[in-house]
């Protein structure tokens, strides 16, 4: 039995400890955000956060995450109440097929938590591991920039509550 906290909720899952986190999220916890893309850590479609760090859920065995806090795109907001990055991706219409987008959002979230005021170069460098095949890159970059600005404004207005 492995214990992990996903989007603030503690879970105990009964799976082979070698099972990559991706399959625990999708099949046991019925979360859709993390996607299977390559199973090789080459595309980033499966990206989630573990303790604030972006990780490839397709490669990380669930046993390595015992007791740790996992965040998926479902933990950042809902369609009715989207979080800052989700709002920014909607505002910029930053998706075509959208299969890569949840991974993009989590990779960006981890970067913004670490560095709330990234330069354009820093955003690109941080996003390098994640692939988009539709060519939505320009909009993804704009959405991250927009979210970063919005988060900083919110944090300046309300320093205690706002966090990325």
């Amino acid at each position: 039995m492995i214990e992990l906290t996903v989007n603030g909720t503690p879970h105990r899952v009964d799976v082979d400890p070698a099972t990559p986190l991706l399959y625990v999220l999708r099949d046991e916890l019925r979360l859709n955000g993390a996607k299977f893309g390559c199973g090789l850590g080459q595309c980033g479609a499966c990206t989630v956060m573990a303790e604030g760090e972006a990780i490839y859920s397709c490669l990380t065995p669930v046993a390595a995450l015992q007791g740790r806090k996992i965040t998926t795109v479902e933990g950042l907001g809902t369609a009715d109440n989207p979080g800052p990055l989700q709002r920014a991706f909607i505002a910029e219409q930053a998706a075509q097929c959208g299969y890569c987008i949840a991974g993009m959002i989590l990779r960006a979230q981890a970067m913004l938590q670490r560095n709330p005021s990234p330069s354009d170069g820093e955003i690109r460098a941080a996003m390098e591991p994640n692939l988009c095949r539709c060519g939505t890159h320009m909009r993804i970059l704009r959405a991250i920039r927009r979210a970063s600005n919005e988060m900083r404004t919110a944090s300046a207005q309300n320093p205690t509550e706002a966090r990325p």
Binding site: N32, G33, V73, P82, Q86, I90, G98, Y99, I101
Partner: peptide
């Protein structure tokens, strides 16, 4: 797009 950025059933 909203479902795609929030983990809805999109695919």
């Amino acid at each position: 797009i909203p479902a795609k950025v929030t983990g809805g059933v999109a695919f």
